[in-house]
């Protein structure tokens, strides 16, 4: 999807919920992968991703096009949600809980447990990844954010600067210092 197509879809999504569905289909896996690789828990990643898209869906009318992919906005919401999860002892996705807590079919979907087990098992097999993920959690959040966006979310420095609303220079220095600190821990 190019930026022009995306802009048209966003304008349409403000009045037509089903157009938002196209953006959802396109970006769900990317956001879920990013969140899962950072938190390492299937259920929490699922809840955070749901809350991310729910917030985006509710606030789509306030989204202003600035020539940058809407994915940066999704990543920003997801990153804030992850930080909230890391700060709180018990994460409670408020919008999601309010609207969908009464829909057991969402969490009891068939094959859900099998897929969850498969994804978590696959993650366990990547011992290097697990080790990096665990050590990363010991770093301050500002380093975790940039490193995960760069290497788990495959975002460029410019994209990270948009997502985190920080200067490109700041991102580069956070990345460099973060990697140094991570290397010492590994």
């Amino acid at each position: 999807m190019n930026l022009n197509e995306e802009k048209i879809l966003i304008d349409k999504a403000k009045t037509d919920p089903y157009t938002f569905g196209i953006l959802y289909d396109f970006y769900y896996k990317q956001i879920f992968s990013y969140v899962f690789r950072r938190v390492g828990n299937y259920e929490i990643a699922r809840d955070i991703t749901s809350e991310t898209f729910l917030k985006a869906f509710i606030k789509i009318n306030s989204f202003k096009w600035q020539g940058i992919s809407i994915s940066a906005w999704f990543y920003r919401i997801a990153t804030n949600e992850i930080n909230q999860f890391l700060r709180a002892k018990k994460y409670r996705p408020s919008y999601f809980h309010e609207l969908f807590s009464s829909m057991p079919q969402l969490t009891n979907a068939s094959n859900e447990d099998t897929i969850k087990e498969r994804i978590e098992q696959e993650e366990q097999q990547d011992q290097d990844f697990i080790h990096v993920q665990q050590q990363l959690k010991l770093l301050p959040v500002k380093y975790q954010e940039v490193i995960t966006l760069k290497y788990f979310g495959n975002k460029s420095t410019n994209e990270i600067s948009v997502i985190l609303s920080k200067k490109v220079g700041t991102i580069k220095s956070l990345l460099s210092r973060g990697l140094e600190k991570l290397k010492k821990l590994l």
Binding site: P17, Y18, F20, G21, Y24, D25, Y28, K29, F32, S33, F36, R37, R46, S50, F53, L54, F57, L99, F100, M103, Q105, L106, T107, A109, S110, N111, E112, I115, K116, R118, I119, E122, E123, D126, D128, F129, V132, I147, K150, Y151, F152, L179
Partner: peptide, 26 residues
């Protein structure tokens, strides 16, 4: 970090179920 093998995701039934619930919520 670039060459680190990361867990790959697949489409889950939840993804579709949540999409339906989300789009019908309004």
């Amino acid at each position: 970090m670039e060459n680190l093998h990361k867990p790959q995701m697949e489409e889950t039934p939840y993804e579709k179920a949540f999409k339906l619930a989300l789009l019908n919520s309004r």
